[in-house]
């Protein structure tokens, strides 16, 4: 079985999904089910976690039976992120954490320095940290150095739906960190982009807006489920390399050789 293994746990699904922005909690839960996701993220930042006043919706999310991945969305400093992580652990009884430390308000770009500092402390405190990071190889290495076992580089800024913006960097990450689970987190807007990420060899995809804001979130969740599975299967099966010369898939023994494309040469322009 081709399973996704993160922090010693195995998952059949390679799609992780967020729980925000849906038209209603009921549609959110239906979408999660349709996506086949076994890991779901949720945010506490604005819900007064100290008072447990979002308990009803948290309980509703927990009924999905998925591995919860609380996140620190909205935190801008290690201190905030660590405090929220501790509260999340207490409320949800899980030490899994999607670590977000935002450095720029406009494009919600992760702050690499705050991220590494927070990750170091959270790993020390026993958290299983999945950091939302940029696609910078050196930042990723630092996160591994401080004890993260999984990395979640962005495809594009959160909520933009721009897809994989810097494929060179992403390929570099995949090539240089071949044994680290890499999950593309954020920026995925279309199932085809999720497929592409999986074809490039990423281990999983995490997304929210593309499903939650679709006109039919449940159907879009299913589309992403198929897209991720398709990309993974393609990667496993082995993609052919692109070629310049056409190579017919049916025999062409009867085709005379002069019908081939002209070879660049005497008197011919390239």
């Amino acid at each position: 079985m081709d399973q996704l293994k993160l922090y010693g746990k195995a998952f059949d699904s390679r799609l992780l999904i967020g729980t925000a922005l849906y038209p209603s909690p009921a549609i959110m839960r239906e979408s999660v089910a349709a996506s086949g996701a076994q890991i779901i993220t949720l945010s506490l930042r604005r819900q007064s976690p100290e008072q447990q006043q979002g308990k009803m919706i948290w309980d509703y999310i927990q009924e999905s039976g998925c591995q919860l991945l609380p996140n620190t969305a909205g935190c801008k400093t290690p201190k905030e992120a660590i405090a929220l992580a501790e509260m999340s652990r207490e409320i949800f009884h899980t030490d899994w954490l999607k670590l977000e430390v935002i450095g720029d308000d406009y494009n919600l770009q992760p702050d690499p320095y705050g991220l590494v500092e927070s990750a170091r402390e959270l790993v020390r405190r026993g958290f299983k940290v999945l950091p939302y990071c940029t696609d910078d190889l050196l930042v990723c290495r630092k996160l591994l150095d401080v004890g993260c076992e999984v990395l979640m580089p962005w495809g594009a800024p959160i909520g933009t739906g721009q897809g994989l913006m810097n494929k060179y960097n992403l390929r570099t990450l995949r090539e240089r960190l071949p044994n680290i689970p890499l999950i593309i987190d954020a920026g995925i807007g279309a199932p085809s982009q999720a497929t592409e990420a999986m074809e490039m060899g990423f281990d999983a995809v995490l997304l929210n807006t593309a499903v939650a804001k679709a006109q039919n979130p449940v159907l879009m969740a299913e589309a992403f489920k198929l897209a991720v599975a398709s990309g993974r299967a393609a990667r496993t099966a082995g993609l052919m390399l692109k070629r310049q010369t056409a190579s017919p898939s049916t025999p062409t023994l009867d085709m005379p050789f002069w019908q081939q494309a002209p070879v660049a040469g005497a008197g011919e322009e390239l």
Binding site: P25, R46, Q47, S48, Q51, Q53, G54, K55, M56, I57
Partner: peptide, 13 residues
Amino acid sequence: EIESDDLSPISLR
């Protein structure tokens, strides 16, 4: 629009 039963005063944010 915040998923919370919280009636405390408006936040600075």
